[in-house]
Amino acid sequence: MSERILVVEDDHKIMRFIRANLVASKYTVFLAQDGIEALDLYEEHLPDLILMDLMLPKMSGLQCIEKIRQYSNVPIIIITAKGSSQDIIQGLELGADDYIVKPFDINELIARVKAVLRRSSSTVAVNEPTIEVGSLYIHLTNYQVMYANKKVSLTPTEFNLLVELAKNLDCVLTHEYLLSHIWGQDYINETHYLRVCIARLRKKIPINDGEKGFIQTIPTVGYKMLG
């Protein structure tokens, strides 16, 4: 069964262009022209990935992402014509996994779709079924995270980043190492992805500085989790 992608775009020409190329790449494609329709189609089809334009009628792409993240960790790639770093960062902070700016090369878009889907379906090598760090429990076999006896909902990228840090307690992992291992070699200089993802982890898992499990910033170098 082919992977399913929901394309949310109000420009008909761009929508048809994206759809044709995704279908040619063997994906099943659903189309939405506004944010309200996007939410309805997501609930109906439960796609494996969403391509989300930011400038949409009825409900903006950012509002749509915020609503989807209340109940789903489906991978989301932002498509924006603005090229505005503020909009992009806001989208990533809301839980988007990647972005691409119009006008874009269709081969780059397909490559990003493949990369995000690969990250979302990647498996973690399991030696021990659970990693325990203070009040943080990471269940590797069923991809669940518990903190202070409460379940924490993470996107696949957030989960993989948390596991990488937890497997290397008290070790400084450089920006380049984390970006290449979690996002891929093509993202090795995209430090804002890492910065935003770390910020989301700290918000979802509010461990105090100095406690076990806290993700410590090593300025200009990288991050480490305290053990």
Score class of each variant (00 low, 15 high):
206 P>C: 02
189 N>K: 14
58 K>Q: 13
105 D>E: 15
14 I>R: 11
82 K>P: 04
44 E>W: 05
166 A>K: 08
112 R>G: 03
174 T>D: 03
110 I>L: 15
181 H>Y: 08
179 L>W: 13
178 L>I: 03
197 C>H: 11
172 V>T: 15
83 G>E: 05
223 Y>S: 11
81 A>Y: 00
147 Y>S: 01
104 F>Q: 07
131 I>Y: 08
29 V>T: 07
127 N>M: 03
135 S>D: 08
96 A>Q: 11
86 Q>W: 01
132 E>Q: 13
177 Y>D: 04
199 A>R: 14
128 E>S: 14
118 R>T: 12
47 P>D: 12
191 T>F: 12
200 R>I: 05
90 Q>P: 01
82 K>W: 04
35 G>C: 10
77 I>F: 02
141 T>G: 00
144 Q>I: 03
12 H>A: 14
176 E>P: 00
188 I>D: 05
99 Y>G: 07
54 L>Q: 09
103 P>Q: 11
172 V>A: 11
164 E>M: 12
161 L>Q: 06
117 L>Q: 08
18 I>L: 07
28 T>A: 11
74 V>Q: 01
224 K>Q: 15
68 I>P: 09
62 L>A: 02
92 L>R: 07
140 L>G: 01
75 P>Q: 06
18 I>P: 09
70 Q>F: 04
139 H>A: 03
49 L>I: 09
184 G>K: 05
190 E>D: 12
130 T>W: 03
15 M>F: 02
135 S>R: 07
206 P>E: 02
155 T>F: 04
110 I>S: 06
171 C>T: 09
223 Y>Q: 12
160 N>P: 02
102 K>Y: 13
159 F>M: 06
97 D>N: 15
186 D>I: 04
163 V>P: 01
4 R>K: 15
87 D>Q: 10
202 R>S: 08
61 G>I: 03
127 N>E: 07
144 Q>P: 07
61 G>K: 01
217 T>G: 06
137 Y>H: 06
40 D>F: 06
107 N>D: 15
27 Y>M: 01
170 D>Q: 05
143 Y>K: 15
76 I>L: 10
157 T>K: 05
26 K>Y: 13
151 K>E: 11
